[in-house]
């Protein structure tokens, strides 16, 4: 059973094509990876799936800027979500943890997490909060600290924690390892695996550098210049010589 099914998705920024006929599937309860270099269309795909693209489109329209066109099919558990607003998609369980973290820098760690838990019931929020603190013990010690003063790795933990608080069924992680040290990279990759195994959330993770993420995914896609060039299980991707060269630097 696939929780998310994207079929023939195309995204244009004005006349430039950002996503070209991409079809991907996320199997329920599994971790799916999307790899690609800069400008491959990873973030655009994430924005399209989470619906943020609709918001961007409207804002650009209002100020007369770039025209964004999105065409294709997107189904969440078989239901068409192409025309559903981003906030309603979050309500349905599609939660994005955006690139560059986008935490609220002037709110404390605890407040950041509470804002994320807007959609959760009181008991759910408490439970998830406890879980986030067991998953990332570092956050517990700095509950009262302002988000902006956290280090990059801590901010990323916080961003993932905040996304978890929204009770996702499908968690979208956009470049969770951006700008982190190798040690932190492995820790976060393990955390992603744990989230998937312990509470059974389906995860779609987009990342440039595949090495730390590949071991934790079940299935992966490789994008290049907006198009899908490769897909396969983690092992198939690891064995592929092109992937090796391009994304492992072997």
């Amino acid at each position: 059973m696939d929780i998310l099914e994207v079929k023939d998705l195309m995204v244009f920024y004005e006349n430039a094509i950002a996503i070209n006929n991409v079809s991907i599937k996320c199997e329920t309860g599994k971790v799916t990876g999307i790899f690609g270099s800069n400008s491959a269309g990873k973030s655009t795909l994430m924005y399209a799936i989470s619906g943020i693209m609709m918001d961007m489109k409207r804002k650009e329209e209002m100020k007369g800027g770039e025209r964004i066109t999105v065409v294709g099919e997107m189904r969440l558990n078989g239901e068409d979500i192409m025309d559903i607003k981003p906030n309603d998609r979050a309500r349905k369980g599609v939660v994005l943890c955006p690139e560059r973290r986008r935490i609220f820098p002037e709110s404390s760690v605890l407040e950041n997490l509470k804002i994320g838990g807007y959609l959760a019931s009181r008991s759910q929020a408490q439970e998830t909060l406890k879980y986030v603190f067991t998953l990332f013990p570092a956050l517990k010690d700095m509950k009262g600290k302002e988000g902006g003063f956290l280090s990059g790795g801590e901010q990323q933990m916080l961003a993932i924690g905040r996304a978890l608080m929204a009770q996702p069924k499908l968690l979208l992680l956009d470049e969770p390892l951006l700008g982190l040290s190798p040690a932190m990279e492995t820790r976060l990759a393990q955390a992603i695996k744990k989230i998937n195994e312990q509470i059974g959330i389906t995860i779609l993770v987009a990342e440039q550098y595949a090495r730390p993420i590949l071991p934790v995914i079940d299935y992966g896609y490789v994008l290049e210049n907006g198009g899908k060039v490769l897909e396969g299980t983690a092992q198939e991707l690891i064995d592929n010589p092109d992937v090796k060269e391009a994304y492992f630097g072997v």
Binding site: E14, R67, T69, V70, V71, D83
Partner: peptide
């Protein structure tokens, strides 16, 4: 997001 199969292109 519509599903129309055409889009308006803007060219100089």
């Amino acid at each position: 997001m519509g599903t129309e199969a055409r889009r308006k292109e803007r060219l100089d």
